[in-house]
Computed example of a mutant assay.
Amino acid sequence: MKITVLALSHKIEPWAQQAVDQFIKRFPADWKVTIKEMKPEDRSGGKPTEQVLAKEAERLRAAVPKGALMVALDERGLRLTSKALADQLLAWHDASENLCLLIGSADGLDVNLKSQCHALWRISDLTLPHAMVRALLIETLYRSWSILAGHPYHRE
């Protein structure tokens, strides 16, 4: 399974990048996780938020790997337990589906782009900085793999 994370953000803090790197290197070869950082649109000049989000959405769509299922991270998305996420990832893995996770900019994601996604997932009910979201997302994906592999990382 290939999992691509498209993140609309500036470079993240070193502590968060270190956490992301540590978890990414733990995945087995058949779970290839990559992150593509994309610069958010320029918000200067009083551009309407909807216009900015629409431009970001165009760039995100163009960057989604061909045939990948799109899942947006959104504050109104589905709340999943670690086990439920692992089960969903297993189903996609077994169906040879590739996944593309979208992390929006400071203003989120374009409403039309979200409507085109296979699913919307919520990382937390809290508002979190991009660096934290990225680190939590990668840890959560690793935790899902560990559940499926029977690895002792996850405990219930």
Rank of each mutant, 00 (worst) to 15 (best):
residue 5 V to A: 00
residue 106 A to H: 07
residue 6 L to G: 02
residue 20 V to W: 04
residue 30 D to W: 06
residue 120 L to G: 15
residue 86 A to D: 00
residue 139 E to D: 03
residue 144 S to E: 00
residue 65 P to C: 10
residue 17 Q to K: 12
residue 144 S to V: 05
residue 155 R to I: 04
residue 147 I to L: 01
residue 31 W to D: 00
residue 38 M to A: 11
residue 69 L to N: 07
residue 6 L to D: 00
residue 33 V to R: 02
residue 13 E to C: 12
residue 30 D to I: 06
residue 26 R to E: 07
residue 134 R to E: 04
residue 116 Q to R: 15
residue 154 H to A: 05
residue 114 K to Q: 10
residue 53 L to I: 09
residue 102 L to P: 05
residue 74 D to Y: 15
residue 123 I to D: 08
residue 62 A to E: 10
residue 103 I to T: 04
residue 76 R to D: 06
residue 129 P to M: 02
residue 7 A to S: 15
residue 156 E to R: 10
residue 22 Q to P: 01
residue 142 Y to I: 09
residue 78 L to G: 01
residue 4 T to P: 02
residue 123 I to E: 06
residue 111 V to P: 10
residue 73 L to C: 03
residue 125 D to R: 15
residue 119 A to K: 13
residue 51 Q to V: 09
residue 145 W to A: 02
residue 109 L to A: 11
residue 15 W to Q: 11
residue 62 A to Y: 03
residue 102 L to T: 11
residue 40 P to A: 12
residue 134 R to M: 07
residue 138 I to A: 00
residue 83 K to E: 06
residue 70 M to T: 12
residue 38 M to N: 05
residue 96 S to P: 05
residue 138 I to E: 00
residue 135 A to K: 02
residue 116 Q to N: 15
residue 68 A to S: 03
residue 135 A to W: 01
residue 111 V to F: 13
residue 28 P to M: 10
residue 6 L to C: 05
residue 7 A to K: 01
residue 128 L to M: 13
residue 47 K to I: 11
residue 147 I to Y: 09
